[in-house]
């Protein structure tokens, strides 16, 4: 359900009384409604669903899982030597 794709806000403008913006998805640029994330700044990443940004992506929280993974590093290496299992 609910395809959500991260994209980078490149500019913002008002159109028909709501906040809109151009969002780049790795170079593919679409006009996206930003009215639900009014505090967004160009350069920030947002999660986009059907042409609407639903949330700003929090960089710090985005890193958490990888910090968890770093703490698991040693276990992984043991197992990598035995890919057959």
């Amino acid at each position: 359900m609910c395809l959500g794709v991260p994209g980078k806000v490149i500019d913002t403008f008002r159109e028909h009384d709501i906040l809109m913006g151009k969002v780049s998805f790795d170079g593919v640029v679409k006009k996206i409604c930003l009215d639900h994330v009014p505090e967004v700044e160009p350069g920030e990443y947002v999660l986009v669903h059907v042409g609407f940004a639903l949330s700003r992506i929090d960089e710090q929280y985005a890193r958490e899982v990888f910090e968890l993974l770093d703490s698991m590093g040693e276990i992984a290496e043991l197992k990598l030597e035995d890919p057959g299992s």
Binding site: L3, V5, G7, F25, D26, G27, V28, K30, V48
Partner: peptide, 12 residues
């Protein structure tokens, strides 16, 4: 291409 991949992601 990076952009083809991105377009595919957006449109599913």
């Amino acid at each position: 291409k990076r952009e083809v991949r991105a377009a595919c992601e957006i449109l599913g």
